[in-house]
Design a protein around this nucleic acid. Structure first.
Length: 645
RNA sequence: GCCGAUGUAGCUCAGUGGUAGAGCGCUUCCUUGGUAAGGAAGAGGUCACGAGUUCAAUCCUCGUCAUUGGCUCCA
């Protein structure tokens, strides 16, 4: 007999070798029908795997993330089985579950799969699912595993097996498909009731662009058809928030082939929005003791040789510009930091001057691979809300915390409550990717982790995500379609001060090396605006809305009064326009709602007589009559409240 | 950069081997209307670009460019 403890801390005795599924059946048939897998101690197991020792047990269903993961992992096998049946000889790479569904990387040899093949694969999957195939787990020796996949001719599996050690290799067999797999899997394929293959794409084997490209098929499955429908509907809704779509509809930005790819053109409404964000941050930074600096868009190649950017990225940059007579080479600036280092170095500094915080909305240009360009989130020319803090080593943590405060203030003002804080450290396995001494790296990485802990931030650590000159703390948010983008970043850097030989005179009258903190709360204006658009679905907070109010005259007779109202608002620093079209009020309201203008001001005979406006707030409806003064005050109050300053 | 898909009016999209269509938007006219679509008429297109096949190509083929879903990359 073995003792099984449950999440509610009860302990029950069972026969040795009992399975989680059998335990579930002993509790209730209904529960058993929903069990996908089980957490045995800290590992997720097949619900059908015998338990031979005392253990804690949690039955996992569709309501548990691990349950979903099990189902999706099994769905990947199901898809592989379908593909193998339809395209004999297909070879398989890896097929994991992911955040929303699963994928499998497949080499179908000469037969290139395209989107049009997905439907047939889906159908075959549905047919197999109905067969309620079970997943049979089998321990296998490395030799046998190599033999099996060797005979099958699947070099990808052979490569994976070669990296495993004997004793940890298992196969899972379901229907006609056998896969190298750690498991776990759902009891049978019958749990998979709704299947959708979402997209197909090339993916390099093992993520290495020098190796073969396999075909990756993404899909998702559900235990109920209605859940799939809901998911697809959610995807459709998310697409409506896409900043590329809204950017076009709301006339925020555009691109032109003639200007060049990845070079955004900000339209008046977008430019106004961006300017307001810049003004907001400038105000916050002024209070926090930042000093403005301005630097040119190009810099001598030698500047970047000194900084190390040339060695690292010179080959992947726009080609240098050269002067006609002297033949000197200049790069479009890919970073502001070297320029700021030169500003710091223009005169000697005392420890009493530190910290010095140079801030600049600096436009930079980077050559990004054409396939990487994506709306405003990934472009070739963008403006960083950059600043570099030069400080003494013992000021690092205080300064770092000061930057976190600014970032949190911004996120709060814009209601970004779901962000990921990522501590990006160096990858000890690839030291060649970084410049500077290990000692300095250790110091910097330790400082960031300490700050994260002291500030009680919930953070994840990613190795290998550091910049080449230093570790960083990144703040990431997801876009409408769940893609993660880095916004704010704070980076500790001991290296550039050394390369630029920056110093300050300490209290001991000796020269010391300052530390540099690179930071950008928005990251880039382009990316930030993109994410902001998706976050609020184009419905900007009042203080950012390009048009805050639209005046809707009931008929042409009230045009003059509308202009008077407009002038009043303009004098009150409120952005308003008049819908002068010869349309009915209902139509004007509908259009204003669709254009996401926060306030609609309806003016007719009544309003003209009493010098008022009838206020309709977008999304809320009629608020009644306001005098012009009341309206201006209400708008200004709302602006201030939203900004939180 | 790599693999796949897409490219028709300002926008969203139909469509066909025989010189092109809708809705919205725009212009004009009628209407002067009170909280999410009043009516009519009209303008607007090198069907991304370049070659090829064909009596004839927006449609078929190839190439280029751009957009897009991923992969790789991201100072």
């Amino acid at each position: 007999m073995i003792n099984i403890s449950f999440p509610d801390n009860t302990v029950r005795q069972y026969e040795t070798g009992i399975t989680a599924l059998e335990i579930a059946q002993s509790i209730s048939e209904g529960l058993a029908r929903n069990v996908l897998s089980a957490k045995v101690d800290s590992e997720v197991w097949d619900a059908t795997r015998p338990i031979n020792h005392d253990a804690s047990l949690k039955l996992l269903t569709w309501n548990d993330p691990e349950g979903k993961a099990t189902m999706w992992h099994s769905s990947a096998h199901l898809m592989a089985e379908a593909v193998e049946q339809l395209y004999p000889g297909a070879k398989f790479g890896i097929g994991p579950d992911i955040e929303n569904g699963f994928y499998y990387d497949i080499d179908t040899g000469d037969k290139m799969l395209t989107e049009s093949d997905l439907l047939e694969i889906e159908k075959r999957m549905a047919a197999i699912a109905k067969e309620k195939q079970t997943f049979k787990r089998e321990d296998i020796s490395k030799e046998d595993a190599l033999n099996y996949f060797g005979e099958k001719g699947d070099e990808y599996k052979l490569e994976l097996i070669s990296e495993l050690t004997d004793g940890e290799i298992t196969l899972y067999k379901s229907g006609t498909f056998t896969d190298l797999c750690r498991g776990p899997h759902i009891p049978n394929t019958g749990f998979i009731k709704a299947i959708k293959l979402l997209s197909i794409a090339g993916a390099y084997w093992r993520g290495d662009e020098n190796r073969k490209q396999l075909t990756r098929i993404y899909g998702i499955t559900f235990p109920k058809k209605t859940e799939l429908d809901e998911y697809l509907h959610m995807l459709e809704e998310a697409k409506k928030r896409d900043h590329r779509k809204l950017g076009k509809e709301l006339e925020l930005f555009t691109f032109s082939q003639r200007v060049g790819l990845g070079l955004p053109l900000w339209l008046p409404k977008g430019a106004q929005l961006r300017e307001r964000l810049e003004q907001y941050l400038k105000k916050v930074q002024k209070e926090a003791g930042y000093l403005p600096v301005i630097t040119p868009h190009i810099g001598n190649v030698n500047l970047y040789k000194t900084s190390g950017h040339f060695d690292k990225y010179g080959a992947d940059s726009f080609r240098p510009i050269s002067t006609p007579v002297e033949g000197e080479a200049f790069f479009l600036k890919p970073m502001n930091c070297p320029h700021h280092c030169e500003i710091y170095g223009h005169k000697p500094h005392s420890y009493k001057d530190l910290p010095i915080r140079y801030a600049e909305f600096g436009t930079v240009y980077r050559y990004e691979q054409s396939g990487e360009l994506h709306g405003l989130t990934r472009v070739r020319g963008f403006t960083q809300d950059d600043a570099h803090i030069f400080c003494t080593p013992d000021q690092i943590k205080t300064e770092f915390k000061g930057v976190i405060k600014i970032i949190m203030q911004i996120f709060k003002a814009l209601d970004f409550n779901q962000f990921i804080t990522q501590v990006s450290l160096s990858d000890p396995k690839t030291p060649e990717k970084y410049i500077g001494s290990r000692e300095n790296w250790d110091k910097a990485e330790r400082a960031i982790i300490e700050v994260a802990q002291e500030e009680n931030l919930e953070y994840v650590v990613e190795y290998g995500e550091a910049a080449f000159y230093g570790p960083k703390m990144d703040f990431m948010v997801k876009d409408a379609l769940g893609r993660k983008w880095q916004l704010g970043t704070i980076q500790v850097d001991y290296n550039l001060p050394e390369r630029f030989d920056l110093t300050y005179i300490g209290s001991d009258n000796e020269k010391h090396r300052p530390v540099m903190i690179h930071r950008a709360p928005f990251g880039s204006m382009e990316r930030f605006v993109a994410v902001l658009v998706e976050h609020c679905a184009g419905d900007f907070p009042l203080w950012l809305a390009p048009d805050q109010a639209i005046i809707l005259p009931i008929s042409e007779k009230y045009q003059k009064y509308a202009e008077k109202v407009s002038q009043f608002l303009k004098n009150s620093d409120i952005r308003a326009l008049i819908d002068e079209r010869n349309e009915k009020t209902g139509k004007k309201i509908r259009d204003a709602e669709l254009k996401k203008v926060p306030y609609m001001l309806i003016v007719g005979e009544r309003e003209e007589q009493e010098g008022s406006v009838s206020v309709r707030k977008r999304g809320q409806g009629d608020l009644g009559a306001f005098s012009l003064e009341q309206l201006a005050k209400a708008i200004h109050d709302e602006e201030e409240r939203l900004q939180g300053i």
